[in-house]
Nucleic acid binder design. Sequence first.
DNA 1: CTGAAAGCGCTAACAG
DNA 2: CTGTTAGCGCTTTCAG
Lengths: 332, 332
Amino acid sequence: MRQVAALAGVGLKTVSRVINGEPNVSESTTQKVNEAAAQLNYLPDLQAGNLRRGDRKTRTLGLLVGSVANPFSGAIHRAVEDLAAERGTAVFASSLDDDPSRERGIVDTFLRRRVDGLILTTAARSQAYLLPEVERGTPVAFVDREPTGVDADTVVCDNAEGASLATAHLLAHGHRRIAFLGDRTEIWTERERRRGFLEALGAAGVPTSSATTVENLYDVDVAREAVLRLLAGENAPTAIFSSQNLISIGVIRALRDLGAGNRVAMIGFDDFQLADLLEPAVTVVAQDPYRMGTIAAERIFARLDGDDSPAVRHVVRTRLIERGSGELRAHG
Amino acid sequence: MRQVAALAGVGLKTVSRVINGEPNVSESTTQKVNEAAAQLNYLPDLQAGNLRRGDRKTRTLGLLVGSVANPFSGAIHRAVEDLAAERGTAVFASSLDDDPSRERGIVDTFLRRRVDGLILTTAARSQAYLLPEVERGTPVAFVDREPTGVDADTVVCDNAEGASLATAHLLAHGHRRIAFLGDRTEIWTERERRRGFLEALGAAGVPTSSATTVENLYDVDVAREAVLRLLAGENAPTAIFSSQNLISIGVIRALRDLGAGNRVAMIGFDDFQLADLLEPAVTVVAQDPYRMGTIAAERIFARLDGDDSPAVRHVVRTRLIERGSGELRAHG
DNA sequence: CTGAAAGCGCTAACAG
DNA sequence: CTGTTAGCGCTTTCAG
């Protein structure tokens, strides 16, 4: 900046004014400064400026998702980025990997860089560690999972309702022995979906004893093996409800291995690419992660713009997409 | 920081020393400072520190990928993040959307925040705008696509070779009328893959006139319609080579629409989830995006650690995965 | 082992 | 319309 000022033959502050588009600079001076800046390839140091600037905004957001390699997270990320880009805000993105012990460290990484806001998918038992930061006025929005120990804007889908609906759908097709295949039990969405599953059974008067729930299926292979075991046992289920994407794929692989795809019904929570082209096509409870990301980002920017109304809990509705696998009737 | 110093009853510099783990601080003082910091929930401002620090490192990287919503990009991102996390480095991630006009602006967004390094997938005709920054010593690595107008570390896959191999594979199964379905022609990988396709035909002595190339298929639907048109025409191809993921899916949908999946052979560039469970299973030229991201990040960190050897061009080999769709023999 | 003074690149407040 | 001075939160340098 000093070099620019020297080259243009003006004072430091004048350069600052031109760069920030402040008024009260003559046309010719502006010209000179811009030329000098271009010649020196000058790019202002945003952080240094924000050190002294009144609003103290870094125009930076911290985003924590399940894994940036996962399409569900990718859609959330993309939504946040799209809104952020409009406001000249850059996004730090990190992966949680459902590891509670990583959460705090990643958030600190963001905070040390003085992000303007935080959009978080969490796994730790409590998010109370955020209280001081929230107190300080940093907006925080939780996405996909509800927080514990801190009150802030939250965007989730109707996990229990979606799971109930799917379960009721299977019941309506004559199934009574239905298996629930769940993710790690520490994950809030898993517990919600399991709750919805059990509630639907209860509402239909189906004894819980006829339902099998297998949990902590943390990847495709573990899920696949669980299904193989389940279907080889006594009283094998005639339908499967899978609580998540990767588990659904494990289920599909297992059914394919057994040639049971057209005999055992299945519905998966979360839509995925090509689900409609499989044989049978896969019935799913579809979420809308892009929308969830959009709402979360909107909340953050609204807070940054001064909205100080009480924390909002936003529920995005899921949608049952019937494609075939969930409409197979119970047999035997 | 001042508050911490006051609360602990020590000088500013002592706090600084404790926080940075510098030597020459007594045990008891360290204790006091840490307590005060914890009590005040103090987190040092990384950017402010880096303003004066000798190495001037922000421990921040800028990553530009095709789209953070795309699994290919997600894998690159994840690889970069994994390496960056080990070094306490945060990653800004942005989506290019193959829009040359966005490229420069996003890079400036990164540069204004003084990132330590840049990992870029580019679309603009030239990356010469980066020369001053490279001159200044900021390490830049290009991933997936080669740059123009600037010399820097580059990680690409063997696009032409992979495409040649796939084409030769189709030729070996008796196909002569093969269609190439390509992405936007501004994209370097598209041109390379097309080149590989044509070279394989040439090497086999197949007249180029018997090959159809359709380009600028920028999404699933456009690709699907192109295939429908192609197969309805005279001299319809008996095999299809698709240059990219989304196009492959468009092809599959079109073949499904026509019930031609087991008659028209196809190979796609890029592997994708569930390709092996479709009917027929899809033969692909698989890339390894996670590995590409890893290598790019390694280059950046090596440069940051002082490696000033000439720019390296790293080629990651692709792999033909035979699953069925590419092994259908030519008919009629 | 500890602290005071100077300065990183920039902007706020005020003076010309 | 323009320049000067102070100071953001921190680290460096150098003197206790």
